[in-house]
Amino acid sequence: MPISLSRKFQQWVSAKLDLPEDVIMDIPRITMIGHLHLYIENHSGLLSFSPEEIRVLLKHNHGQMIIKGKDFVIKTILPEELLLEGTIEMVKFIKE
C-alpha cells in the first residue's frame, strides 16, 4: 500500500513540523466570508452548477463538495481555485 504509506508520512511531517495540512497534502482549503462568498482552493473541476447548487470535485480522492444556496455566480474559476458568490446555505462533503 504505497499510497497509504506516503499519506502516513505526510501526516507525520505535518504533525512534527507543525505545518498546515493543506500545504503538504493538497487538502482542499475552503474560506467563507459570511454566507456571501466561498473560496475553494485545490479543487479539480466543476461537476454541476446551477443557481441553487454547485458540485465541485476535490483533488486526491477527497471526494466531492456540495454547496447549496441561492443566486450562485462563479466569480472566478482557475485550475485549482474557485470563488463562489451568492447566498450560501449549506456546505456538504461527500467521501467516495
Binding site: 466543476l46 454541476s48 452548477f49 443557481p51 462563479i74
Partner: peptide, 27 residues
C-alpha cells in the same frame, strides 16, 4: 455539459469569470 466545457476551458488556461446559469442549459 456546460460544466465540463468550463473545466476544459480552465484546463486550457483560459480565464473565465462571472459564470451564472440563465436557464437549464444556458450559461
Amino acid at each position: 455539459g456546460g460544466e465540463r466545457f468550463i473545466n476544459a476551458l480552465i484546463r486550457e488556461g483560459i480565464s473565465v469569470w462571472n459564470i451564472a446559469r440563465l436557464e437549464k442549459e444556458v450559461l
